[in-house]
């Protein structure tokens, strides 16, 4: 019984917006199965009463004052855009064609 099926991998790829080919799915699914078995070991650690860690030092309340700093120019902002129009980022239709 694999820890993750090919169908699940296909669903995750859709969720992550990666149009995987069938060949890639065939290749990836068993690899992911192996990796998930490896990482699943964390569940063997009894850690119910252990707090989570996300930083070497427990920092809190890092904030900036409500002040303005210079922005990018619109030219800079749009400099990497694959397409631009009317000083805006041009993107493909958001809804599928009917």
């Amino acid at each position: 019984m694999p820890s993750i099926t090919r169908e699940e991998v296909a669903h995750l790829a859709r969720l992550a917006r990666i149009e995987l080919s069938d060949a890639e799915l065939d290749h990836l699914a068993p690899q992911l199965d192996q990796i998930i078995t490896l990482v699943g070991q964390v569940s063997q650690v009894a850690a119910d009463d252990i707090p989570p860690t996300s930083h070497a030092l427990p920092l809190t309340n890092v904030m900036r004052e409500d002040e303005n700093v210079p922005c990018l120019t619109p030219e800079q902002a749009l400099s990497g855009a694959p397409a631009a129009e009317a000083q805006r980022f041009r993107v493909p239709r958001i809804l599928e064609e009917d």
């Binding site: 922005c71 120019t73 619109p74 749009l78």
Partner: peptide, 23 residues
């Protein structure tokens, strides 16, 4: 607020497009 939630860009309504942005 004068600036955005996570950066210092202004929040004026109606500014020309993409003039109030940063990385």
């Amino acid at each position: 607020t004068k600036s955005k939630m996570f950066c210092g860009c202004p929040t004026e309504f109606g500014a020309p497009p993409n003039t109030q942005t940063c990385p």
